[in-house]
Simulated assay, not measured.
Amino acid sequence: MPSSHLRSLVLLLLALVASLVLGLLAYLSYEPPALTGPLSLAVTGAAVLVACVAVAVTRR
Rank of each mutant, 00 (worst) to 15 (best):
V50A: 07
A54F: 10
L41T: 06
L12I: 01
L39A: 08
L24M: 12
L13D: 15
T58L: 13
A46F: 15
L41G: 10
L28T: 11
L39Q: 01
L9D: 08
V43H: 01
V53Y: 05
S40N: 13
A47W: 02
R60G: 03
V55N: 05
S4C: 04
Y30F: 12
A47E: 05
A15R: 10
S29E: 15
L14K: 07
A34T: 05
Y27D: 06
P2A: 00
R59L: 10
Y30M: 05
G45K: 12
L35T: 13
L14S: 08
A34F: 15
G45P: 02
G37Q: 07
E31T: 07
A18Q: 11
G23Y: 04
C52R: 07
H5M: 08
A26R: 08
Y27Q: 11
V55Q: 10
L6M: 08
L49H: 05
M1I: 07
A51F: 09
G23H: 03
H5C: 14
V17R: 01
Y30A: 11
R59A: 12
A51R: 06
G37Y: 03
A56Q: 12
P2N: 03
L20M: 11
Y30G: 01
V50L: 09
L9Y: 03
P33Y: 01
S40M: 06
L35Q: 10
L20P: 00
V57S: 03
V57M: 08
V17G: 01
A56M: 08
P32R: 00
L20G: 01
A26H: 07
A56F: 15
V57E: 09
L49G: 06
V48F: 14
A34G: 13
V50W: 01
A47H: 02
V48D: 01
P32I: 00
L6V: 07
T36V: 09
L49S: 13
S3V: 02
L25F: 04
M1H: 12
P32D: 00
L11F: 02
A26G: 09
C52P: 01
V55M: 15
A56D: 07
S40V: 04
S4V: 03
M1T: 09
T36M: 03
G37K: 13
R7I: 02
R60N: 09
V55L: 12
L12S: 06
V17E: 12
A56E: 10
L22I: 14
L11W: 00
V21K: 03
T58G: 02
T44H: 07
L35P: 00
V48Y: 04
V50K: 00
H5K: 10
L6N: 04
L39F: 02
L24I: 15
L28N: 11
L35H: 05
L28E: 14
P38C: 13
A56W: 08
L28A: 04
A54D: 14
V50Q: 03
A46Y: 02
P32N: 00
S3N: 04
A26V: 15
S3Q: 05
L24P: 02
A46I: 10
S29D: 07
S40Q: 12
E31G: 01
R7K: 13
H5V: 07
A54M: 07
A15C: 10
L39Y: 00
A34K: 15
A34H: 04
R60W: 15
A46G: 11
L9K: 08
R59F: 10
A51T: 05
P33F: 02
L22Q: 13
E31R: 10
A18V: 12
Y27E: 06
L24H: 05
S8T: 12
T58H: 15
L49C: 07
